[in-house]
């Protein structure tokens, strides 16, 4: 699996650091970090599907939305306890993930991206017109049960969730199965020629991605306590997820995490200067510059920086 002692030390250090952080940062910063944690979960989920297998999804909020709406409706309208509603939401999202898989069996590239975008738009329209008494229609839902109170508890929960997802995916990607998933993104025909079932591998990637998206979506809605379709199915939300993964570095686990934190804090610090949608212009420009300079993302910049330091230290 190629696991080395320093991998455990780095993950251990990151986990310890993140759990000690509430001792030294303000509640405001913690709230920003909660959003960064959820964005990291969504970016990891997107990367499992799109970064690894090369099937670029423009409809990830479709999966997140299924998870969020399912648990919100079950808890708010039918008084189902969250311990039951969240697993149901995750299962429903995985079933939705299989729906997204269907077009991927025949098409890829820009056509696949457009089909996934249509999935997102379809759900956006459906939740507004079909049974608005359940979904809340265009206004969405509020008063949804929250799982935690206070910034620090919300932070601990989101951090535990994000790190659990990240470490699990990191371990999974270190296996031969993870290697095969990445191989699909590079040359699907060769994967088949090596005797692997690309359909099964894609199904696994789509289900895993949907599992994470559903889990993240469900916990996110129970953190917010409300659900607004316009915000959830907003094109800016979609691009924030994609850019976080690309900016941080696709086909890695740490990359989408770094990208998510960078994006969230960048947008937050730009808020006083550029309160409107102009902020997205700035992050777009940064993403463009970084992508031109280092297509492998921030994680590669960090990696080469560490290598240079080590070489300098040796010299």
């Amino acid at each position: 699996m190629g696991l080395r002692w320093f991998h455990y030390v780095l993950w251990g250090g990151l986990i310890a650091g993140m759990f000690l952080l509430p001792q030294v940062v303000s509640n405001g910063t913690m709230r920003t970090m909660i959003f960064a944690n959820y964005l990291a979960i969504f970016a990891i989920s997107w990367d499992v599907l799109s970064g690894r297998t090369g099937y670029v999804s423009f409809g990830h909020p479709f999966l997140i939305g299924i998870g969020a709406y399912t648990t919100a409706i079950l808890t708010k309208r039918f008084d189902v306890p969250v311990e039951i509603s969240i697993p149901i939401a995750v299962v429903c999202t995985m079933i939705a993930g299989l729906l997204v898989l269907l077009p991927a069996l025949r098409i890829r590239g820009s056509y696949f991206a457009l089909v996934t975008l249509a999935f997102m738009e379809l759900l956006y329209q459906l939740v507004q017109v079909i049974r608005p008494d359940l979904t809340g229609g265009t206004r969405g839902m509020s008063g949804i049960q929250t799982l935690t109170r206070g910034a620090s508890n919300g932070y601990y929960l989101s951090t535990a969730l994000m790190l659990s997802v990240a470490v699990s995916m990191w371990l999974l990607m270190k296996t031969r199965l993870g290697t095969a998933l990445a191989a699909i993104g590079m040359n699907e025909e060769s994967v088949r020629g090596s005797g692997l079932s690309s359909t099964r591998l894609k199904a696994f990637a789509f289900l895993t991605s949907a599992f994470i998206a559903g889990l993240g979506g469900a916990f996110y809605v129970h953190y917010l306590g409300s659900l607004a379709p316009r915000a959830l199915f907003d094109i800016n939300f979609l691009f924030t997820i994609i850019v976080a993964a690309l900016l941080g570095g696709t086909s890695t686990i740490v990359g989408p995490m770094i990208g998510a934190f960078f994006m969230t804090f960048l947008l937050e610090y730009l808020r006083p200067v550029l309160p409107g949608a102009e902020r997205y212009f700035v992050y777009g420009a940064i993403a463009l510059l970084l992508y031109m300079y280092q297509p492998k993302g921030l994680v590669e910049l960090v990696r080469t920086g560490v290598l240079r330091l080590r070489k300098g230290g040796v010299a």
Binding site: A182, A183, N187, S194, L196
Partner: peptide, 29 residues
């Protein structure tokens, strides 16, 4: 699995993977 191995043109490797990972893709069966 029935015993046929395929070495495609060298352009059909997985370019951003290590040599070992390329070999491991073949090891699945």
């Amino acid at each position: 699995r029935s015993g046929v191995g395929y070495a495609p043109e060298r352009f059909n490797l997985f370019p951003y993977m290590s040599v070992r990972d390329n070999l491991m893709v073949g090891a699945f069966t």
